[in-house]
Design a binder for these strands. Structure first.
Lengths: 120, 120
DNA sequence: CTGAATCCCGAGAGATACTG
DNA sequence: CAGTATCTCTCGGGATTCAG
């Protein structure tokens, strides 16, 4: 558990946490894990995302090697995004958190209710 | 993979992600997993945390049932924080991310370097 | 010692308009 | 269709001060 004993901007665990802390990034990876999708398709499927945020998110995911960008030279140009093998391993890992969430969230909410009632 | 197909503030996975997105929360849980610690001990061990953030973090962790708060009526009062069994299961889950990070971060960085060089 | 309350500030998100 | 550019503004974090 050494990684937790000190905060460091270079801590690899921290970097991954920051990555999946990004709401849009996780949603994009999840959608792409079902197959390639084009930009505006993603935009429509992810409710509430702005062009700017989607663009930023995709760019950084591509930079990290988690997503592949393929521009098809049609007129007008179409761009297809797909998940990489590396990205897929991350999705699988995040799935562990999903399991935890589904298993333990009821308990967390019970605790929250207890806590809130104790205040009132 | 249903949970990823739409953004919802009530998505349990999202709630957990938001929780561990909190830098201080993860560090606190990591430290407490080694045994109970008092407030100012935590403050000293976590470099760069402010009183405000530590206080907020501990309060919300207690609310979620991840951390237990025990006030000892000395003068002045001392407060001892410890991790709960529930909190321990979360730490173990986050450990999966640590493994991923240590395994795949070199690959991510290689991708980033490639990407950045391609621009220059 | 363990917090709560207040003020202050900058990073980051949204909206809008424009381009290849 | 797939972005970029700019502008604004909010919200969350830091510093400081006060309290039990």
């Amino acid at each position: 558990m050494q990684s937790f004993n000190a905060y460091s901007a270079n801590c690899p665990t921290r970097l991954v946490l920051d990555r999946i802390a990004d709401k849009w990034a996780v949603l994009v990876l999840g959608l792409l894990s079902n197959g390639p999708v084009r930009f505006n398709q993603l935009r429509r499927q992810i409710d509430g995302v702005s062009q700017k945020m989607l663009s930023q998110t995709l760019k950084s995911l591509e930079r990290d090697g988690l997503v592949h960008r393929k521009a098809i030279p049609t007129v007008p140009v179409t761009v297809e995004y797909s998940i990489t093998p590396l990205g897929r391993t991350l999705v699988e890992t995040v799935d562990g958190l999903r399991i935890w969430a589904e298993t333990h969230m009821p308990e967390v909410q019970k605790s929250q209710n207890r806590y809130d009632r104790a205040l009132a």
